[in-house]
Write a protein that binds this DNA or RNA. Structure first.
Length: 304
DNA sequence: CAGGCGTGGAA
DNA sequence: TTTCCAAGCCT
């Protein structure tokens, strides 16, 4: 029989409690001072940050997050508004369907959960726009519960430090989840700090490009470092073109609707893209997604 | 489950 | 300039 299977992950040459304290101590000394991490940040404030941070960098999220929480300090405040107001407030964060889903989540919280952000993972997962990651993040960061929080940062840290490869697979694997589960501290409060600490390590030090290994608290333990930092060997990562896609057209159309207050005539939309077929397809898509509402023939607006 | 879904900044 | 990436979700 073979001695070692290919899927068996090497483990860190570090006792678990020492691994935990190493990352947590580094986090306490090096963490960014982000407003959704302050003690007075409400679960709603945490949840809003998680929606906005899905695929959008912290720097761009900060001003929108502040404006959002000022205008809508509770889920009920947002739920009382038209979804189009959420889309407008979302501004240029990208993926505006997130704004619609956040609004829908606020409605569900208000109407079905007594107005408070749910504190259990399963209920969070049932909300629009909340997937496995966001449910775990809100439960962990806002309610200090013990959950595997597996985002792109954490996956990269574990890929390097534990498995010894430069990048994780494109899709999350069962093996990754087992690794993350095995490393999770038993105590809930410690697990919550560990989760945010590993994420922060991935965001600040163990970055996708140009990791600052000299500053890494796991430098001597890291499997990738010990293996001589072998380059990534997996399949090419999906490089998406953007110029000329429907996504770009949708973005241009929605920008017109966002910046206009009230209705917009067809001609204003026609001006943003020369190809009438693609333009119509993009507009149809926006309407189908609920991001745009037809008012009458040739007149559109954000959803009321 | 692979692909669609925005936007802007850094390498 | 081009490419890659940034706390994913949904179908």
């Amino acid at each position: 029989m073979t001695a070692i299977t290919a899927t068996e992950a090497p483990s860190l040459p570090l006792p678990l409690p020492l691994l935990h304290s190493t990352v947590i101590d580094w986090y306490e000394a090096s963490k960014r001072d982000l407003p959704w991490r302050t003690p007075d940040a409400t679960p709603w404030a945490v949840m809003v940050s998680e929606f906005m941070l899905q695929q959008t960098p912290v720097k761009r999220v900060l001003p929108v997050w502040r404006a959002w929480l000022t205008r809508w300090p509770t889920p009920a405040d947002l739920a009382a508004e038209a979804p189009g107001e959420a889309v407008r407030m979302w501004g240029r964060l990208g993926y505006p369907r997130r704004a619609l889903r956040l609004h829908a989540a606020a409605v569900a919280i208000t109407e079905e959960h007594g107005g408070g952000v749910p504190d259990d993972h399963a209920t969070l997962l049932s909300l629009p726009g909340v997937g496995e990651y966001t449910a775990a993040a809100v439960a962990s960061f806002a309610f200090r519960q013990r959950h595997v929080v597996l985002d792109t940062n954490v996956r990269r840290v574990f890929a390097r430090a534990v498995t010894g490869v430069e990048y994780p697979a494109i899709a999350t694997t069962a093996a990754e989840r087992r690794t993350a589960t095995a490393l999770l501290p038993d105590d809930a409060a410690t697990a919550a700090t560990w989760a945010v600490g590993v994420m922060e390590l991935g965001a600040l030090v163990c970055t996708a490009r140009g990791p600052e290994c000299g500053d890494c608290p796991l430098f001597t333990a890291c499997a990738w470092q010990r293996a001589g930092r072998p380059p990534y060997e997996g399949p090419a990562r999906r490089g998406q073109t953007y110029e000329g896609t429907d996504r770009q057209v949708r973005g241009k159309l929605l920008a017109v609707l966002r910046e206009a207050h009230g209705t917009v005539p067809q001609a204003r939309l026609d001006a943003v893209w020369p190809d009438a077929v693609q333009r119509a397809r993009a507009l149809d898509g926006l309407v189908a997604d609920g991001l745009v509402e037809p008012v009458e023939q040739g007149v559109y607006r954000l959803p009321q």
